[in-house]
Design a protein around this nucleic acid. Structure first.
Lengths: 239, 239
DNA sequence: AGGGCAAACCTGTATGGCAGGTTTTTCCAG
DNA sequence: CTGGAAAAACCTGCCATACAGGTTTGCCCT
């Protein structure tokens, strides 16, 4: 696998690309925030002297990146931060074999040891509650892997949120789609109840470390979680 | 600023979304890799029983996320990993005030202390050469900020590449667009030649640590680099 | 003033068309 | 039979128009 990652120099002066640029410029110039409405397709079409088709494709592209929200009949609105697009990019990279699962685990370990620390320092009572709830739900439902996975994913996202840095949330979320597909592999590679419960216990311990506000402990637990996950994956033959 | 980051549950069964799903499924099912060609718009239009308009918007959206490449007259092809879309998402987050510059620096510090370590362990001779070249070019051109910035950005990207994990490249690249806009602020907040050269010197030292294969030293230098950058930004009043 | 209804507006999707760029086929010359 | 050029077929970028719904606005009646 190559590690080449590039960005096309987008001087591709197609009408659609230019229109996308104009729209983002409009957002910036008018200092629009999430929820604010953009001009209608017809209005932009006139204003920029392009057909409605072009404006539509520009809107469609921006919606694909989740920069704006589109709904029938309604005007387009500026969107809230959303990791949907990034998640698709990562998924695409894995499916086209440009990214391996192990590489993702390395990045997640790097990111999430940090979010664990920050969460321990910055979490609110509500967040602790939600984090703990997910950890406990993993144990309660531990015979229904589907449930365990959902709470596992939610646990990590909630923890990132408690770190109070939306960029971490974005990145953790970016791995969601891929995680849904690789999670069962990791689960099956822990064949005994004991091993599965052990993995779940780490989450419970993590919740506790975050509650008591112990960043070192939280970081170490998260690091251990990922180290053991990678070990399990390797044992299952995922190279 | 709120730290809410979500992902719309895309059961939005619009024709375009479904078509996007069908196309990505096609890529997966046929195990297409970068450069492989997709069916024509007309073919997909017939195959999925939707108008060419819908297929076009689906293609357009996928191209916006850089999952496929589009060029006039040519068939759409599967794209290589590209951080263009992610860079736009981050830029959007900053412009709509959902992300602060400081938050980005925290993430970059987390990520890049890791890439520095890995680069020291895994770099090839070629990569060392390119990294050093950029660092030296920063010093040579240090009276032309534009040049310094370009080599600075290239330095960090090249370093991520040397870490041999494309996901790190993706993330470092994701900050490129925003960095281009905030970099001058950081530069101006180091008013004296001495301070500017000191910042550049860290890059040169980093290149050396990576050449000699000293991961600890590389990590520490990178950490120091970000700590001082944040300090400079704060001094300039960027909260 | 308030509530409901109709008109105006807006987006989603479809069809047909044309200008150029690209690929494939064909066919001629050597 | 081969090399290569011309032509045909195909493809995408962009446009105009049309119509079915969903949404917003504003008016009118109570």
């Amino acid at each position: 696998m190559s590690t080449a990652v590039s960005a096309k120099h987008s001087d591709a002066a197609s009408l659609v690309s230019n229109t996308i640029g104009e729209i983002t410029r409009h957002i910036r110039a008018h200092e629009l925030g999430p929820g604010d409405r953009l001009p209608s397709e017809a209005a932009l079409s006139r204003q920029l002297s392009v057909s409605r088709t072009v404006v539509r494709e520009a809107f469609s592209s921006l919606a694909a990146m989740r920069l704006i929200d589109l709904r029938a009949g309604r005007r387009a609105t500026v969107a809230e931060l959303d990791y949907g697009a990034m998640s698709l990019v990562i998924e695409h990279g894995v499916h086209t074999e440009q990214i391996t699962v192990q590489q993702i685990y390395d990045v997640r370990r790097t990111i999430e040891t940090r979010t664990a620390m920050l969460a321990a320092l910055r979490r609110t009572a509500d967040e602790v509650e939600r984090i703990r709830t997910h950890a406990l739900a993993m144990r309660e439902n531990f015979q229904r892997p589907e449930q365990v996975m959902e709470h596992d994913l939610a646990f990590h996202l909630e923890l990132a949120k408690a770190a109070k840095n939306p960029v971490f949330s974005l990145i953790v979320g970016a791995f969601e789609r891929v995680s849904r597909q690789t999670w069962p592999i990791g689960w099956r590679s822990r064949p005994s109840d004991a091993e599965q419960l052990e993995m779940i216990q780490i989450h419970i311990d993590l919740a506790e470390a975050i509650e008591t506000g112990d960043p070192q402990s939280a970081r170490d637990l998260m690091a251990r979680h990922f180290d053991e996950s990678v070990k399990a994956l390797l044992a299952a033959g995922i190279a």
